[in-house]
Amino acid sequence: MSATTEAKPWDRLKMAERVARDIPEGWYVNLGIGMPTTVADYVPLDREVIFHSENGVLGIGPRPPEAERDPWLINAGKQHVTLRPGGSFVHHADSFAMIRGGHLDLCVLGAFEVAENGDIANWATSENDTAPAVGGAMDLAAGAKRLWVIMDHTTKDGRPKLVHRCGYPLTAVGAVKRVYTNLGVFDVTERGFTVIDMAPGVDAAMLKARTAAELHFQA
């Protein structure tokens, strides 16, 4: 048996599953557009987690089969969804009162970069010449009790996304509490990024080589 095992980064489904494992019953949770939305698929229905969407839906249930889609019921990503028994509808100002008022236990967003001081950049890139689109990300990042990020550890061309300070325009300052990547799970603490889990076969050297910030390891 070799000392170095082959690294097996989590794929996107495994990442979503890893996030879902950490969400306890009773939390009110907003999931961002894209990869964060898939987290809900891994929270079993008998663990009652109440999912919120910016467009005024509280208590989102499983995705409907195509034939049963309700044209009047969408989430913030404009995907058709269902409403669980006990769910409710509110208007946009009340929906964001839930967000900004600190009533959500958790928001999970994607990101371009997360810095070791908890800053997040996820809405615009400097090389992007199309119109910027912020949606509800700034309200969610500033308002939820906890902000977790789910994202690949590096860009497609290998640049680290966990950084000392963000280079892209910020979404919020000091907001991120935890980051889930394909390589590991990182708490944002006073000291910076602390590694709390690693994908199978991933080791400290590999993480350090792919991260542009200091990493702390639990004893």
Binding site: A93, F96, G135, G136
Partner: peptide
């Protein structure tokens, strides 16, 4: 012209 406003800020400004 485009003025980008965070969604919750937009809702609250209108409210």
């Amino acid at each position: 012209e485009l003025e980008i406003v965070p969604q919750g800020t937009m809702a609250e400004r209108i409210r």
